[in-house]
Design a protein around this nucleic acid. Sequence first.
RNA 1: GGUCCAGUAGCUCAGUUGGAUUAGAGCAAUAGCCUUCUAAGCUAUGGGUCCCAGGUUCGAAUCCUGGCUGGAUCACCA
Length: 597
Amino acid sequence: MSIESIIKSKVIEAIKVCYGQDIDDKTIQIQKTRREFEGDLTLVVFPFLRFSKKSPEDTANELGNFLKEKINCIEDFNVVKGFLNLLIDNTYWISVLNQAVATKNYGFKALEPGAKKVMIEYSSPNTNKPLHLGHIRNNLLGYSVAQILKANGYEVIKVNLVNDRGIHICKSMLAWLRFGGGETPESTGIKGDHLVGKYYVKFDQEYKKEMEALIAEGMDADEAKKQVSLLLEAQEMLRKWEAGDVEVVALWRKMNDWVLAGFDVTYAKMGVDFDKVYFESNTYKKGKAIVEKGLADGVLYQKDTGSVWANLEGDGLDHKLLLRDDGTSVYMTQDIGTAYERFNEFKIDEHIYVVGNEQNYHFQVLSLVLGKLGYEWHDKIQHLSYGMVELPEGKMKSREGTVVDADDLMDEMVNTARDTSNELGKLEGYSLEEAEDVYNKVAMGALKYFILKVDPKKNMMFNPKESIDFNGNTGPFIQYTYARIQSVLKKAIDSGMEIPDLASDKLEISVKESMLIQLIANYPNIITEAGDATSPAQVANYVYDLVKEYNQFYHDFPIAKEENVDLRFFRLVLSKQIGEIIKSGMSLLGIGVPERM
RNA sequence: GGUCCAGUAGCUCAGUUGGAUUAGAGCAAUAGCCUUCUAAGCUAUGGGUCCCAGGUUCGAAUCCUGGCUGGAUCACCA
């Protein structure tokens, strides 16, 4: 039982004994004592004044005396206004450290039979262009949230829904046919997704040229937009694809394969993966039967022209189209179908979609429509809605070339990491492979931490001109602290010292040391909270706080050089445990830690 | 126009289930600390009408109302 819950139960007892009142434990607020006051934990007594009918100071003193008497690890207390500051003794804190050390996968809940089953969909790229910075945020969030949910003891299924069909891919296909001269990834040495993306841009350029020509000939601008022959051809291509035209399908397959091979490389570099990949070319017709059944059941309605709609006015929204006049599916229809299949096939308890906040409306509607259709799990779909990544110039636009390409960005990060590392020259004795592994970890650590430390739901700013820092509140700073700890431990062992499994609990420890243990004690709560909030940022900020405190400790206290053996052992155990938590917390963010850097 | 989200230091961000007459980090700036466990570190200094105005109460960056600013969205697109 944690010290907080012990105190809470005793506070309830105290209020009962002293003031004859039963209180809810929600009225009990225990927080970390502020730095500038003496103590470890603080009880806020204001809520109890209406029971005690005494001044805040008197109430706090009464409660303080009661708690000190009843809880033996409370050494002393002091009162500042309505705040009761409790001093917890060293023995207790050291026992907390020892417990953490003795716990395998400290802070993680094990996967047990009957665990909650969660599916998380993320990435979901289009196959007409390479991944960019926006996708990076999506992928890192999806992967990290999956890790965090697993750490909370959930069974997690990661899925990707690849949008491999539609007018956008036809545009790339058409441009490639028209202007490509038979180029392939092999013939050009260009990564498949980038090659296809090049023709997506090419299409847009040629489209604009033709449109302007039409306008110059006197055509109305709105009309010209629709009459560009390239667009008409692309639309024709999509019709052929849907009709199963052999040539179009073969070209589609070839170019999609190029892109998917490219994505695999990017995913591997990013360090994300999936348990199952869906393709829209297989799922885009799904949901039609469900919608037709809804129509038959009278929960949906049909217009004269044939289209099928959901009336959401009762929920304060509009009408939503689910089947077109010609009976074909729209995106919403497909999502209805795939959600149904997933809940049925996997018996999942919850489904999280990692999708940008531009689709908030879509997911709101999806849940409502599923509810209308009578699926009781309609409220088990959760939209993990994240904010846009903005550049100083504003939003990224792929066709205007203002995107930050994912592959380029990652490569640049690795180059920067390599240069910095070589400048500092700390990897002497490492082989080329070992060194490259460190550069990669540091580069990706910097990028991932930069993105994940920001609250997912907020928009974030990325300035490509100012490369991501390696100092301060950054991934490399955290990795560095880990490497530092490993170095101390290694030197201690090399010089013949043993690092015991447990620290002696009869020691005088400093305020800084007890603060570090309190941070360690809080790690499990952080994992729970990050899981509830689906927010890797909470883990990131926690690890940063921990590391910042540790570096101050490291600077001010000898560890392996401490003369007092028990104290030295304690500090080695403490350092080792903090290293474990850094590694563990970073793994929740999908970030690796190097032994040296 | 309707709906949703955000607004905290020059910049990037924490802090938001209401708590300490003193709102935190990092970057950038300035000044220090490497014959001692990794200086990708540590220390110090300066930097704020927590968008504005009201309200709720012992107490508000945090909750409520109204406004301002920015973003997203409201397709027989995805």
